[in-house]
């Protein structure tokens, strides 16, 4: 109780301080919180083709950002650069004030469009493989069990991935990403392969987990309505540049049919088609 109180009242102070002392205070056992991300002048080329040209963005710690754009606009590339899976030609990415480590280190985790579970490992072992390699091997399974509980699949740890439904598999993938308590979660169209109903269910689910764990979420999606339903902020990438950057000031959980919802969705879609 007291700890929780001091943690919240200290939060604004911590943002000003950047010393190691502040970071140790801000690291409680379960809720890890998020990390700030700053991107400056980011440029990426494949051969002659410039995919991203001079992107400047910064995300607050714990913010839920959706990146939308037409296919091939460079939104997935931005995500891969953020995780250090590719090297930029110019510019810089800093995560929590540090240069982005390769594959995100233990600070950041990546969720693919497909679950990409190892079919020959039980669900629990799949999740345990997401644990930080600094955690001793015998402590990884309890952590994995905890993460499975977080995604509501605590009793499915002994199953093979092949017996789960598509939505459940993606939840296992989410648990695998969460088991290391990342401060930044990058999601590359994670719900794109699911049917419409499961997708809406999973969106509510993702929102709950994000609220509970407080990581910074960067969601790449082509579904504008999904972006409006989930994000604090929508960034539209077009022609390798940030074409639109709007806040979504709606209260959660959001009602899809509402006028404000529709207005923001319309604004983003208009800009999306205007670039054509």
């Amino acid at each position: 109780m007291l700890e929780a109180l001091t943690a919240t009242s200290l939060a604004p102070l911590q943002r000003d301080r950047t010393g190691a002392a502040a970071r140790t205070v801000a690291e409680p056992s379960v809720a890890t919180g998020g990390t700030a991300v700053s991107i400056t002048g980011l440029t990426k080329r494949y051969g002659d083709k410039t995919v991203l040209s001079g992107i400047d963005l910064s995300f607050r710690a714990g913010e839920f950002v959706a990146i939308v754009g037409r296919s091939g606009c460079g939104k997935s590339t931005l995500l891969r650069l953020l995780l250090g899976l590719e090297k930029p030609e110019g510019g810089e990415i800093r995560i929590g004030g540090q240069p982005a480590p390769r594959a995100g280190g233990d600070v950041a985790r990546f969720i693919f469009q497909e679950p990409r579970l190892l079919p020959w490992q039980r669900v629990l072992d799949n999740v345990a493989l997401g644990a930080s390699r600094t955690v001793p091997a015998d402590r990884r399974r309890p952590l994995a069990q905890e993460a499975l509980k977080e995604v509501g699949l605590a009793d499915r740890g002994g199953e093979w991935p092949s017996v789960l439904s598509g939505g459940q598999r993606q939840r296992v993938a989410l648990a695998r990403a969460l088991v290391s308590h990342p401060k930044l979660l990058a999601l590359d169209e994670p719900l794109g392969a699911l049917d419409a109903l499961t997708r809406i269910e999973m969106q509510g689910f993702l929102e709950r987990v994000w609220k509970h764990q407080g990581f910074t979420a960067v969601l790449v999606t082509h579904d504008v309505s999904e972006a409006v339903a989930l994000a604090d902020r929508i960034v539209l990438i077009d022609g390798g540049r940030v074409a639109l950057d709007v806040a979504v000031p709606l209260a959660r959980p959001r009602v899809r049919g509402s006028a404000e919802f529709g207005a923001i969705e319309g604004q983003v879609l208009d800009r999306l088609f205007a670039g054509r």
Partner: peptide, 20 residues
Amino acid sequence: QLLEMADVYGFTRAEMFWRV
């Protein structure tokens, strides 16, 4: 895709071989 996942999730070389 599994190899890429293992790479992104920081699998060691031994884990890469025995698990993937």
